[in-house]
């Protein structure tokens, strides 16, 4: 089965229930923001996504650009199945890995080995596959005997290596990646970069959210410019980036 993503007319509202919505509502309305409204039951909602439609098939490399809060991460989370839209429809075919949170599932009180095992279980791997995952991650992260010690005592470099090795060990058909992952190129060794590139090339569909032009131009063939939860522009990477950056500079 080849991977595909089909998003049709997806809108997503974030209800704000906590942190005293009523007084928040007053504050918010006095500052007038077009993206914050109240729904029929007078709850404060943030319009995170508005009528987003696109479809991707095997081989597509999509970049998401836009200012902070434009809805990029929300869109990634929606594609990953974490947020379920009430309006519109969403179809994702193929195995999926979402690199959204670098700390995902890493518990500092557990040993390296336990963290690896848990990640394997999250992905429904059987015992043999978990053993292979362990070897692969240990090899890459060069933890040696530290694998048996709690992650809490690792040096920060070890934590980064372990987190990175875990995130990139399981290779999906659909890869969703938030910008943090490719941002710190300098801190990653050449080896890390090779591994990531290998993974990105291996994925049939890549959806990458980033602020960095060179990352987008290097990896993506198509760009969607998100603005206030809507698709503002959608097209070939170079073309959209020119418009996007031209406007941002003005």
């Amino acid at each position: 089965m080849s991977a595909e993503i089909d998003v049709r007319g997806v809108s997503l509202d974030f209800p704000l229930y906590h942190g005293n919505a009523r007084s928040l509502k007053r504050t918010v309305f006095s500052k007038v923001s077009s993206r914050i409204a109240s729904d029929v039951r007078h709850r404060v909602v943030v319009e995170a996504l508005r009528d987003v439609s696109f479809s991707l098939s095997s081989g597509d490399r999509l970049g998401l650009v836009g200012t902070n809060g434009a809805g990029k991460t929300t869109l990634l989370r929606t594609l990953a199945g974490i947020y379920e839209p009430l309006i519109g429809s969403l179809r994702v075919n193929g195995s999926l890995n979402a690199l959204l949170d670098p700390q995902l599932g890493m518990n500092p009180d557990m040993t390296g080995r336990e963290n690896i095992m848990l990640r394997g279980l999250y992905n429904g791997l059987d015992r043999a596959a978990i053993r292979r995952l362990e070897e692969d991650v240990c090899d890459f992260a060069e933890l040696d005997d530290f694998i048996e010690l709690p992650v809490r005592i690792y040096s920060s470099g070890m934590v980064v290596r372990l987190g990175f090795a875990l995130a990139t060990a399981i290779r999906p058909q659909v890869l969703l990646m938030d910008e943090w992952f490719m941002a710190g190129d300098a801190t990653f060794m050449e080896k890390a970069r090779a591994r990531l590139e290998d993974m990105v090339r291996g994925a049939e569909i890549l959806v990458l959210s980033s602020h960095q032009e060179h990352v987008i131009l290097e990896w993506c063939t198509r760009v969607i410019w998100m603005d206030q939860g809507r698709v503002r522009a959608d097209g070939p990477a170079a073309e959209i980036m020119d418009v996007y950056l031209g406007r941002a500079a003005a």
Binding site: G81, L90, S95, L96, L125, I170, P172, Q173, G202
Partner: peptide, 22 residues
């Protein structure tokens, strides 16, 4: 990296748009 791991990532619930919504 072993080939088995590539296909082992958990499949999300695939939805067919031609079918009525779940």
């Amino acid at each position: 990296m072993s080939a088995a791991l590539q296909t082992a990532a958990r499949q999300p619930a695939a939805r067919d748009l031609t079918q009525p919504p779940p």
